[in-house]
């Protein structure tokens, strides 16, 4: 069977850096784990990884090591919490690996397949920018979550990455989370603008997954290198993230049958050359 545990792979991307993507991925991981799911958090920012930094970890092996002979996926995975919340760290400062070509990525997926299909969720924390690695990881996941903030720069970059994925890679489905919104009204307005632009110019509709309001508690959690959902689960941002996780969980429950049909990562069917 391609996907024995009906693992849902979710790529978290943003176009622009510094919009809270890694934090969101990490805390969604904690929320889903708290709801009783196993989850692997994979740092796919191959140039400037920082998932491990956010957690105060200093792993001695990372994702890139998987490309070498004799390194097993289980040697690289770090447990975050007992009961199946694990992370797969990446290396920082290896510019050669930012532009991973399809051969390297194919090899990586092949090595990863046994590992990732043990979890209920696989969350890919992608880097900023629109490079080849971001694009191919984004289209290889079963779902994509685009993180934007109400700032025009973030909206533009978020739109740009959606546009490239839609027009060059045929990706049509995107979940959007508005992060760091002042209030629910601003969050709704931000989503609406992005959605209108996509409807008008790309002929696609976005899915509003929800928002996370600005919260000073989150800043404090980052400073302490502790995930927000562990540090202050009842905070505003904590509750917002939890409700996002509930929606993701529901999506997986509703699409279990569909998930078994394709591998966790990789194209749904073989496509021609670009």
């Amino acid at each position: 069977m391609d996907n024995p545990n009906q693992t849902l792979s979710l790529a978290v991307l943003s176009g622009k850096g510094g919009v809270g993507k890694t934090n969101l991925a990490l805390n969604m991981g904690y929320a889903l784990h708290a709801a009783g799911h196993s989850l692997l958090l994979m740092d796919c920012d191959l140039g400037l990884a920082n998932l491990d930094v956010l957690l105060g970890l200093s792993p001695d092996k990372n994702l890139q090591d998987l490309l070498r002979e004799g390194v097993r996926p289980h040697d690289v995975v770090l447990p975050l919490e007992p009961g199946g919340l694990d992370i797969l760290p990446a290396a920082s400062g290896v510019p050669e690996l930012v532009e991973m070509d399809e051969d390297m990525q194919g090899l990586l997926f092949q090595r990863l397949n046994d590992l990732v299909s043990r979890y209920h969720f696989l969350v890919l924390d992608l880097g900023a920018g629109i490079n080849r690695t971001v694009l191919s990881f984004a289209k290889s996941a079963r779902r994509r979550l685009v993180v934007v903030t109400p700032e025009p720069t973030s909206l533009t970059d978020g739109y740009a990455v959606i546009k490239v994925l839609a027009s060059q890679h045929g990706v049509r489905d995107f979940w959007v989370v508005v992060n760091q919104a002042a209030d629910a009204r601003e969050a709704r307005q931000t989503f609406k603008r992005l959605d209108m632009a996509c409807r008008n110019f790309l002929n696609l509709e976005l899915t509003d997954l929800g928002h996370v309001l600005q919260d000073p508690t989150l800043v404090e959690a980052v400073r302490r290198q502790t995930p927000l959902l562990k540090f202050a689960p009842k905070s505003q941002a904590g509750r917002d993230i939890f409700s996002l996780a509930v929606k993701v969980e529901k999506f997986r429950t509703d699409s279990l049958a569909e998930l078994t049909k394709a591998p966790v990562l990789g194209p749904l069917q073989a496509t021609g050359t670009d």
Binding site: P152, L155, T156, Y159, K163, Q189, R193, L194, M196, A197, N200, F201
Partner: peptide
């Protein structure tokens, strides 16, 4: 530019 107009409302 016309896409940005939508984005910036």
């Amino acid at each position: 530019a016309n896409e940005k107009k939508f984005l910036f409302g």
